[in-house]
Amino acid sequence: MARLGMVIDTKKCVGCMDCVVACKTENNVPEGYNKDWIVQETKGAFPTLTTEIRSERCNHCDNPPCVSCCPTGASHVHELGKVVLVTKNECIGCKACVASCPYDARFIHPDGYADKCTFCIHRVEKGLDPACVSVCPTHCMYFGDLDDPNSQVSRLLASRKNHSLMPEVGTQPRIFYLR
């Protein structure tokens, strides 16, 4: 079974937010909410400052606390690519999954269920890339099977320095950022 993940080249990302707009359009994300977003992180001391621009979203962790804490099984790991999803008519809106996510990637949809990035599973099932990946004007986002050593994502991770977000939390995120 594939283990889908994403690799984002922070050297190419310009923070244009096309990925954010594409996600909102493709997934009908309600006004005022975001399933993906842009973070700009600046570190160091002048004049040796470094800035990293990242497109962030649910990390579809290998060890997802949002799935284990769900009392109804609405939050689950989908058989296609081990993508973490929510079945909206099984969700009671208890918000345990929202509190359990160290990335604060989830939110409560105005209709009452927990919602988040789905890696555009409806597109992936048709063999397409997620909307954010397909629209990126700088082609900084890559999507594929992390378990396949010949996939583009695996080769990029093998050849470039990279990091994930908060690895110390132990959730084993599947989105990686190339330095």
Binding site: G32, N34, W37, I38, V39, Q40, K95, D104, F107, I108
Partner: peptide
């Protein structure tokens, strides 16, 4: 310095979690 800026402002999530009243 260590500065983070984000475009995310999800209700009940940002700037800090407040899902439980």
């Amino acid at each position: 310095m260590h500065e983070l800026t984000t475009t995310r402002s999800n209700p009940q999530i940002d700037p800090s979690l407040h899902i439980w009243g």
